[in-house]
Amino acid sequence: MIDLLRLKQVMFILAAAMTCTVSVSTEAGQVVVRKSSEAFNAFAVRDQVLREHEWREALRMQQQINILQSLPVGCIPMVRPYAYYSCGGNFYRPYQYQNKELYIQIDPLDSESPSLHK
């Protein structure tokens, strides 16, 4: 009796697992069907996919960098170990880009660094 009950439980678990694996949908991306008589350059497709991947990575990296065109009010200029600004718990380093000064957020530095206004 116990073996029959255990067998029913195992069968139920297997049936549930099979239902879950069958019902999961997957996407393979775009599928293109071509005639064999049409010209096809696999290397050009590879290069295009690589360029698209690099572009997506560049956008992802850009989203992680906080860049300001001007500093918030009340920033304190710091000089050591290099010139940067302390702005209410955030720190920005000046950066020249296309003849403009931008400010890139950096990790917090040693709190003992002297400021220009001390």
Rank of each mutant, 00 (worst) to 15 (best):
R6D: 05
R6A: 10
K8C: 06
Q9V: 08
Q9P: 00
M11N: 14
F12Y: 06
F12N: 10
I13P: 04
L14F: 05
A16S: 07
A17V: 02
C20L: 15
C20M: 13
T21M: 11
V22L: 14
V24A: 13
E27P: 03
A28K: 15
A28N: 15
G29W: 04
G29Q: 01
Q30C: 08
V31Q: 13
V33D: 05
R34Q: 13
R34I: 11
S37Y: 05
S37C: 04
F40D: 00
N41V: 03
V45K: 05
R46I: 07
Q48L: 04
V49S: 03
V49Q: 08
L50V: 06
L50I: 06
R51K: 13
W55T: 08
R56Q: 14
A58T: 06
L59M: 08
M61K: 14
Q62N: 12
Q62Y: 07
I65H: 02
Q69V: 11
G74F: 01
C75Q: 05
I76Q: 11
P77S: 03
M78L: 14
V79P: 11
R80D: 15
R80L: 15
P81Y: 00
P81K: 02
P81C: 04
P81S: 05
Y82L: 09
Y82H: 14
A83F: 14
G88M: 03
G88Y: 06
R93N: 02
P94K: 02
Y95T: 07
Q96N: 12
